[in-house]
């Protein structure tokens, strides 16, 4: 195997060492997902006294029988929830990425000595509890909360009349999610910008390119892997999000994650149908991952 005369340096590990962690994830991640799959086609059920027989019935319930005029106004309520929720998720992820881009740009190109301090300042809130930050927004946005009471105190609105769209709307859900993710998205973009070889920018300048052209032709394309990674970082957790809409959303902001949660532990228990939704979400996220390419692969090419 080894070419004669050339000793390969000994490596530290032994391949079999991956077995325990791999087995662990297989047992507690892959196997449960397989179980969800079995539930979704009724090969298993937790209904008392019902015999489990293979059936696509619940999948048939999920995919709309008739499509209506819009993809979120079909005959299947949970399909509608999925489309609406997914659409909003993409919008939130795009908005968050857009908000994070200038931040990353500033950190990468606008700072020098204090860079790590400035980076730390925006990342630090991320280390405080997520739920507490959602709670803080709830306290600020609610009808008799900080914003509204401030408006009343400043006589900008008659006392007792809150601004109605501040909470229980897509606005509040989007705001809180964007708030939670902006620093997290800025990080991979910042890293990809930092990796850009400054000589490329010098070369662009020498060839007569202005700052804008240099940005368009050099910086932006080279920062794209970070942008994709950041976008995906928000997209994945938000597709299954159910806590934020529960705390700051309303009847109109019912998200797919909430539907799954409700079907498993909420008022409308139906594990088999819930399993259909969970499998579908997993498949869709998997496809999105495949589409976003190698941005997230762990093994860097070398």
């Amino acid at each position: 195997m080894t070419p004669a005369g050339r000793r390969l340096p000994p490596r530290l590990g032994q391949g079999w060492l991956v077995a325990p962690p791999a087995a662990y994830l297989f047992a507690l991640l892959i196997f449960p997902i397989v179980l969800i799959g079995l539930y979704s086609v009724f090969l298993r059920t937790n209904l008392t006294g019902v015999v489990a027989v293979f059936s696509f019935q619940d999948w048939g319930r999920f995919f709309p029988a008739s499509w209506g005029e819009l993809p979120w106004r079909t005959s299947s309520p949970f399909w509608n929830t999925f489309v609406r929720s997914m659409g909003v998720t993409v919008v939130i992820a795009l908005a968050t990425t857009a908000l994070a881009y200038p931040l990353a740009y500033f950190l990468a190109f606008g700072t020098r000595r204090r860079r790590s301090l400035l980076l730390l300042v925006v990342l630090a809130p991320f280390f405080t509890s997520f739920l507490l930050r959602v709670l803080a927004w709830q306290v600020m946005l609610r009808a008799n909360g900080v914003f509204n009471s401030a408006l009343w105190e400043l006589h900008l609105r008659p006392h007792g009349e809150p601004v109605s769209w501040l909470i229980n709307t897509w606005f509040s859900v989007g705001l809180v999610l964007a708030y939670a993710w902006v620093p997290f998205v800025a990080l991979p973009i910042f890293v990809s910008m930092e990796r850009i070889d400054r000589r490329l920018l010098e070369a662009a300048h020498d060839l007569g390119a202005g700052r804008l052209t240099a940005f368009r032709k050099v910086t932006f394309p080279l920062s794209l892997p970070g942008v994709v990674a950041g976008f995906v970082f928000v997209l994945i957790p938000t597709t299954g999000e159910f806590v934020t809409p529960q705390l700051v959303g309303g009847p109109g902001t019912y998200m797919f994650g909430q539907a799954i949660q409700d079907l498993f532990v909420g008022t409308a228990s139906d594990w088999n149908y819930g399993a259909v939704l969970a499998v579908w979400l997993t498949v869709v996220v998997g496809l999105l991952m495949a589409l976003s390419g190698r941005a997230l692969t762990m093994d860097p090419r070398r």
């Binding site: 991640l29 539930y39 957790p237 799954i260 949660q261 969970a278 996220v285």
Partner: peptide, 13 residues
């Protein structure tokens, strides 16, 4: 890349 809600539901089952 597996949403937390799916991990939770899977372990529940």
């Amino acid at each position: 890349v597996v949403p937390a809600v799916v991990v939770g539901v899977g372990l529940l089952i």
